[in-house]
């Protein structure tokens, strides 16, 4: 299983793997905001938590259909399904590889982009905390969506339609915890909910996604 993790990360880093794309998208999406809403610092600072979360979520979405589609098309998925690895483990490793190549880089890049959006100083700590707690759920939910649509040709748009509503709870709690934290309010409850959703998706969705893969392969 570690072999699979290493392979997926290596594939993401190599040419055409799309590793930089998500980050670049995150950067561009955030940079566009001041052009749209105007350069006024106070307003930018107010909306920065939400903007950063939404941009990260969309950047995450970009690379989702690579998780299984490429393996499905070149036959690797069939071979993985007949290998000694349990499909649940394959799904979990792929989701983890996706997080390591998207969610984690986004978390590291987010504070830098927070500067551009005039994010209040008190928010940086919570920005990193909410991203660390929340982005794994984006990868695991996305992997579930990718598993559902693996057999669909040109399934990218459908995948977005299915996955985006599932992102609503993480987005709401993540952005809310960040906003409250930045304003110095108590944010334990949304923070715990955010972590709870992440843990729940990590624990349960690989099983559901593995079943979806099996259904799609048969």
């Amino acid at each position: 299983m570690i072999a699979l993790l290493v392979r997926d990360i290596r594939l993401a880093m190599r040419a055409g793997g799309g590793f930089g794309l998500g980050l670049a998208f995150f950067l561009i999406a955030v940079v566009l905001v001041p052009f749209g809403v105007g350069p006024e610092g106070g307003l930018l600072g107010t909306i920065a938590p939400g903007i950063l979360w939404i941009a990260a979520l969309l950047a995450c979405l970009l690379s989702l259909d690579r998780i299984f589609t490429l393996d499905y098309e070149d036959g690797s998925l069939d071979l993985l399904a007949t290998s000694p690895l349990p499909m649940e483990g394959v799904v979990a490793m792929k989701a983890l590889a996706h997080w390591l190549t998207t969610g984690l880089p986004l978390t590291i890049a987010a504070p830098v982009l927070g500067l551009l959006l005039n994010l209040p100083e008190s928010a940086y700590y919570w920005l990193v905390v909410t991203f660390l707690l929340g982005t794994p759920a984006l990868s695991f939910i996305g992997t579930f969506g990718a598993a559902l649509t693996v057999g669909v040709k040109r399934g990218g748009l459908l995948l977005s339609l299915l996955v985006l509503p599932l992102y609503i709870p993480s987005l709401t709690f993540g952005a809310e915890a960040l906003r409250r934290g930045a304003e110095g309010m108590a944010n334990t409850v949304p923070l715990l909910m955010l972590a709870g959703i992440t843990l729940g998706t990590i624990a349960l969705l690989p099983f559901v996604a593995a079943q979806a893969i099996r259904i799609n392969l048969r």
Partner: peptide, 10 residues
């Protein structure tokens, strides 16, 4: 259900 609960935090 989670979304419903989440919006209550607004």
């Amino acid at each position: 259900l989670l979304s419903r609960y989440a919006t209550l935090f607004w």
